[in-house]
């Protein structure tokens, strides 16, 4: 039960984050909003890290540099997310975002890109994506 509450809150926070970014962007500009929220988030995460110390520089050296830079994609994620929310609203943005996310992950898994263990494409995944696409069409009809 507690786990469900946590997972539910995580989803609520992600939506809240998108809306907050859109609002801040309206007031001060999108790149400013991205820079500010990533900076304050970084400071907070760093403080927690200094307290829990759950990693070392040696561990990070074992990771391919490309993967270490993955966080940088957030700049483009925030820009795209905010632009989409401003144009089509929150529901359609999140719905399309989730489909693209699952579809792209599905392709990564199927192709075995980025050192991911190649996985067989399963029918339920195809049905799931088709259902989601049908849902988005209904949202916009």
């Amino acid at each position: 039960m507690k786990g469900i509450v946590f997972a539910f809150l995580a989803g609520a926070f992600i939506t809240l984050q998108g809306v907050a970014n859109a609002r801040i962007s309206d007031a001060i500009g999108t790149w400013q909003a991205a820079t500010l929220t990533q900076l304050t988030g970084f400071v907070a995460a760093m403080l927690i890290f200094l307290f829990v110390r759950d990693g070392t520089a040696v561990q990070l050296k074992q990771v391919h540099p490309l993967y270490l830079m993955g966080g940088g994609l957030a700049a483009f994620v925030i820009f795209s997310n905010v632009t989409a929310i401003q144009h089509v609203g929150v529901t359609l943005t999140i719905a399309s975002l989730l489909i693209a996310q699952l579809l792209f992950t599905f392709v990564i898994d199927g192709m075995g890109w980025f050192g991911v263990k190649k996985q067989k494409i399963r029918l339920p995944q195809i049905i799931g994506i088709l259902l989601m696409a049908a849902g988005v069409v209904m949202l916009k009809m």
Binding site: L73, S80, T93, L97, Q101, L102, F104
Partner: peptide, 8 residues
Amino acid sequence: AGALVGMQ
């Protein structure tokens, strides 16, 4: 955004 989130 969705594709980038998936990659990230």
